[in-house]
């Protein structure tokens, strides 16, 4: 019935590290974006775990808000990626390093 809270926090830390690894080593903008999603999810898991530890629901509410913000962020980010692709025919972030066209 009962699981140590630290296991969930460790799992969350490992997933966050893997997500930041993805942001650092991948160069496809879509894959970088997916890695950011992974990081957000890892943080959500930690929030829910701490909510369970403190017997309070505030962590769950915060995780809920973070999901909403993530949804909005995905919409805007993917629109930017589509706009960059239209102009340059690439999603490689190294090809889009100048800030002008």
């Amino acid at each position: 019935m009962r699981t140590p809270i630290a296991w969930f926090v460790m799992l969350s830390g490992i997933l966050f590290a893997l997500g930041s690894l993805g942001v650092l080593i991948r160069r496809n903008a879509l894959l970088i974006f997916m890695s950011v999603e992974l990081q957000l999810n890892a943080v959500n898991l930690a929030l829910v775990a701490f909510a369970r530890m403190h017997n309070a629901l505030d962590g769950q509410v915060l995780a809920f808000f973070s999901m909403v913000v993530a949804a909005a962020e995905v919409v805007v980010g993917l629109a930017i990626i589509v706009a960059v692709y239209r102009r340059r025919q690439t999603v490689d972030v190294d090809d889009a390093r100048e800030l002008r066209w």
């Binding site: 699981t3 140590p4 630290a6 926090v9 460790m10 830390g13 966050f16 590290a17 530890m53 017997n55």
Partner: peptide, 20 residues
């Protein structure tokens, strides 16, 4: 980073703390 989290968790809540 993973090692750092492990050290922090061990110092903070301990690996054996059960959910209340």
């Amino acid at each position: 980073f993973v090692v750092e989290i492990a050290v922090a968790v061990r110092a903070g809540i301990g690996f054996a703390t059960m959910a209340p």
